[in-house]
């Protein structure tokens, strides 16, 4: 079971002076249960790409298969696809509109055709999952802080019980603790529920810390697709297209250039620490041997 993109192209305003090819022959296979990061400079096609995954945008050419079925088939149920592939937009808190937090989260499941009771149960579960204190459920969502509003918006999508959760820069504008809270929440949903998560992010550090696989978009094409280690090995090429590697990757590469035996594949603080301790204490013991 998976989502497969086969030579997907998307052209905005075709045939006009404003024609832009936003996606160019994109081939991707998204397996069930993966935690994928999508990175790319502004305008590289990330947001266009993810809006194809739940059928919000239609490819100009190419095919998309959801669990083996062509989503552009006439008898394919796009509504069902959108129920199963949940999309959290950038700044999702701008889409809150109900008078209470609880009603806002109920909106999605009600729209799916669930009864009031069933929708309520879903809303309770989703709000609990995002760690919203129960005494706030019947307050206006507009009185919450930025990070909390965003959690309500994410709960609204979780309440629809998607199999795939796509988040477009869910941490933009949040303080460091808020960033960690949102990403830890998403990681927990992935771990405990086994849902597929696709995270669009501008933070290389966050991507390195959380995801199993990174897809790098550049000018509408997939430039790299691999584990964080494989992708960040190309840090020089990434810089050339407006991206970067995590800070520690640069550190390790600099040290290596000075002749230290360190692991240049380290992409997280924990990995860098382990490698540095080994390299430094290793060098110490060799030196002691020499003096003996």
């Amino acid at each position: 079971m998976s989502i497969i993109l086969d030579k997907v192209n998307h052209i905005y305003s075709p045939g006009t002076a404003y024609e832009i090819q936003a996606l160019k022959d994109v081939n991707l296979k998204i397996e069930d249960g993966q935690f994928i990061g999508i990175i790319g400079h502004t305008g590289s096609g990330k947001s266009t790409l993810i809006q194809h995954l739940n059928g919000l945008m239609k490819a100009t050419s190419g095919a998309i298969y959801f669990h083996g079925k062509d989503i552009y088939d006439e008898d394919f149920d796009l509504r069902e696809l959108r129920n199963r592939v949940g999309l959290v937009f950038q700044y999702p808190e701008h889409q809150l509109f109900e008078t209470t937090i609880f009603d806002d989260v109920c909106f999605g499941p009600k729209n799916q055709g669930l009864s009031k009771e069933e929708a309520g149960l879903r809303a309770f579960e989703a709000l609990r999952n995002v760690g919203m204190p129960e005494e706030l459920y019947y307050q206006s969502p507009f009185d919450l802080s930025g990070g909390q509003k965003r959690r309500v918006a994410i709960a609204g999508v979780l309440a629809m019980k998607p199999e795939v959760l796509i988040l477009d820069e869910p941490t933009a504008g949040l303080d460091p603790a808020g960033r960690d809270e949102i990403l830890d929440l998403v990681a927990r949903m992935h771990r405990e529920r086994g849902i597929t998560v696709i995270l669009v992010s501008h933070s290389m550090e966050d991507v390195a810390k959380y995801v199993q696989r990174i897809v790098v978009m550049n000018r509408g094409s997939v430039m790299y697709d691999g584990t964080p280690k494989e992708v960040f090995r190309h840090y020089k090429e990434l810089e050339a297209v407006g991206l970067a590697a995590p800070q520690v990757t640069y550190l390790m590469n600099e040290l290596k250039a000075y002749g230290l035996k360190v692991d240049t594949d380290a992409t997280t603080i924990a990995e860098a620490r382990a490698s540095l301790l080994e390299a430094l204490t290793g060098i110490d013991s060799q030196k002691n041997d020499f003096h003996r």
Binding site: D175, P176, A177, G178, E205, P246, Q247, V248, L251, I269, A272, R273, L276, L277
Partner: peptide, 18 residues
């Protein structure tokens, strides 16, 4: 205060603690 320090500062701190 819900803030953080730069990655490099965290790494340096961990190395010192080791």
């Amino acid at each position: 205060y819900r803030l953080d320090v730069p990655q490099i500062t965290i790494l340096a701190d961990l190395l010192r603690q080791s």
